[in-house]
Structure formats: C-alpha cells, structure tokens
C-alpha cells in the first residue's frame, strides 16, 4: 500500500516535472491576473496539441502572438503530453474549473469530447474549435470552428493528381494516425475526386503517424511490394511527404519524375523541397488565423452571432517557381 502511494507520488512528480520543461509559453502559475476578477484582461484557455510538426508550431505560435496582453488577453497555453487526449481533457476540465472566459480547443482526437464540452456549456464558457473538429460534430456544443477546410484542400490535391495522371496511374496514400478527424477529412476530399476519375488507381494506404522516418520505412516497402510501379503519392502532411522523397531516392528513382509526391500543409521545409523539385505539389493548409480567432472571441463574448464554421483561405503551390517565390516570406 505504502509502495503504491509512493509510486503514484513519484509519477505525479515526474509528470509535473516534464510539464514544467515543456510549456515555456505558459503564463499560468504566479501570474497576478489569474482568476480574472476585476482585471481588464480576458482569460483565454488554449487546449493545444503541442509539438507535432512545423505546421502546428506555426499555428500555436501565431495564436500566442495574437492573444497578447497588449491586445487585452491572458492566454493560458496547455499543450498535450505526447499527443495524448487524456492530458487534453484534464487541461480542458481545469480551465472550466478555473472559470476562464473562453476556451480554444485543438483536439488531438475527434471523438470523446461531449462530456467536457457540456461542462463548459453549463459553466457558460464559450468554446471555439481551432483547426481540428470533433466527432460527432455537435455544433450546439461550441461557438464555431475556425479551420482551413481539409476537404477542400484535399480535393485540390486530388484534382492536381488527375491533371498529372494521364490515361492511367497508380497512387498511394500516406495517412496520419487512424481515427484522427484531419485524416478522415483529407481522405474524404481526395476520395470525392478520385472516385469520379477511375484512371487514378489506388494501390493502398498506410499510416505513418505524421512522421518522416516512419513514412520512409513504410514507403520503401510499399515501393518494393509494387515493383516501383507507383506514380503518385498523396502524403497527408509535409513530414511524411519528405520521408517518401527519401524512400524514392533510396530506391534509385527520381522524385518528381518517376514518382510525384503531393503533400498538405505548406511548411517552409516542404516549399524548399518543392523548389528543389523533390516534391511536386504542396497545398497550403494555412496556420496563420490568429486574427480571425481573435475576432471571433470578441464577437462571442459580446454575444454576437458567429457562423458555425469559418473556413480559412489556403493556397496551393504546383511548381518550383511558385515555391521559390513564396519562400522568402514564409513564416513557418
């Protein structure tokens, strides 16, 4: 019994220690404005994803740069521990208990949020979904979702694939972790176009968990099992696309010629690779919508009506030249 208690205490200590190591951006703890009573600042709890990749880094940095003290906000940034939904729900609950004014939520997983959102609703705290949606999509539980539209972006990629395909071509999809709403949405958009264009032939799909080295390992085997007969790769994020590039080169093929790789996100690294001709198509999934979010927060607090889905406009890059042109002012 004693030992178990000790173990739990040690674990709790360990978790808090690492948490300390991670959230340099946090303003919680020791901040005199905590609690919000009587102060002018609006307290915003941001249940975030945390380190996941360059896109996420840009998005969350942009949020933190927008919701500043100067702009009249006290942003509490709570990234997930190792993309774990449990840690997000815990953070969400404590924001509700603290009584923050608004909660911004980027869910690592789409399902399982109803109970938490209902609690926030009872406490009359408006919740705004940032980027990631929830499943089932109960629009009554949140104010609005601000995101670039994954379905639209993925459709754009698929249309580009059709244009590159000719009479017939084989394609392979590198997916994010199964069950994540982004993955489902990007698949939906792609499949809508692909099903209408039978010349696009699917040879398979595997998850590479958004990661470069897994994508490399996955795709080198996929190439072998298909005797290199794959012309197009749909990588659902930049990191995996860059992994696929390495697998293609490893196999003695030329990316952009033998195998054309399209990715979604549009990070600086991906645009560099596109400028070098390694990637063939990059669809931006615009992370910089802090201003939009700020606008929505003000409106929500003022009780104004807001659309239940606000689409952030995105662009696409389909040539090395376009990428090279965009690179100098790329913030992420």
């Amino acid at each position: 019994m004693k030992k178990t208690c000790l173990a739990i205490a040690a674990l709790a200590l360990a978790v808090s220690l690492t948490a300390c190591g991670e959230d340099q951006g946090t303003s919680s703890g020791g901040d005199p404005t905590t609690g919000g009573g009587g102060d002018e600042l609006i307290t915003v709890g941001f249940v975030a994803v945390g380190p996941e990749g360059a896109w996420r880094q840009a998005n969350e940095q942009n949020m933190q740069d927008t919701f500043t003290k100067e702009a009249g906000f006290d942003l509490k940034y709570a990234p997930a521990t190792n993309l774990d939904q449990k840690s997000q729900i815990d953070a969400f609950t404590s924001f509700v208990d603290e009584g923050v004014d608004v909660i911004l939520l980027s869910a690592t997983e789409g399902s399982g949020w109803e109970a938490s959102l209902e609690r926030a609703q009872e406490a009359e705290i408006p919740v705004i979904l940032i980027d990631r949606g929830i499943e089932p999509d109960r629009t009554d539980l949140y104010v609005t979702r601000i995101a670039p539209d994954n379905v639209v972006v993925a459709k754009g990629v698929a249309e580009w694939a059709v244009s590159q395909c000719g009479d017939s071509c084989n394609y392979f999809t590198l997916e994010g972790p199964a069950g994540v709403s982004v993955v489902n949405e990007r698949n939906t958009g792609w499949d809508e176009v692909a099903s209408a264009n039978p010349q696009l032939k699917k040879v398979g799909a595997q998850t590479a968990n958004w990661s470069t080295d897994e994508a490399k390992s996955v795709f080198e085997t996929v190439l072998k099992s298909n005797s290199n007969n794959i012309q197009i790769v749909f990588a659902q994020n930049d990191e995996m696309g860059l992994g696929a590039v390495q697998a293609v080169e490893e196999a003695g093929l030329t990316p952009g010629v033998d195998v054309k790789i399209a990715t979604i996100d549009g990070t600086e690294n991906a645009l560099k690779a596109l400028a070098d001709g390694k990637l063939s198509f990059v669809a931006e999934y615009n992370p910089l919508f802090g201003e939009t979010a700020l606008d929505v927060v003000r409106k929500a607090l003022a009780g104004e009506a807001v659309e239940s889905y606000i689409i952030v406009p995105s662009t696409t890059f389909d040539s090395p030249e376009a990428a090279a042109a965009a690179l100098p002012e790329r913030k992420y």
Binding site: E52, W210, S211, D213, E214
Partner: peptide
C-alpha cells in the same frame, strides 16, 4: 533513427 531521415521528431522518434 534520426540519421535515417535527418530529422528528429520529438514526439514520435
């Protein structure tokens, strides 16, 4: 693991 792709993925490596 990192030299393979020359990226360290702090959440996934």
């Amino acid at each position: 693991a990192t030299a393979s792709v020359m990226v360290v993925d702090v959440s996934n490596t």
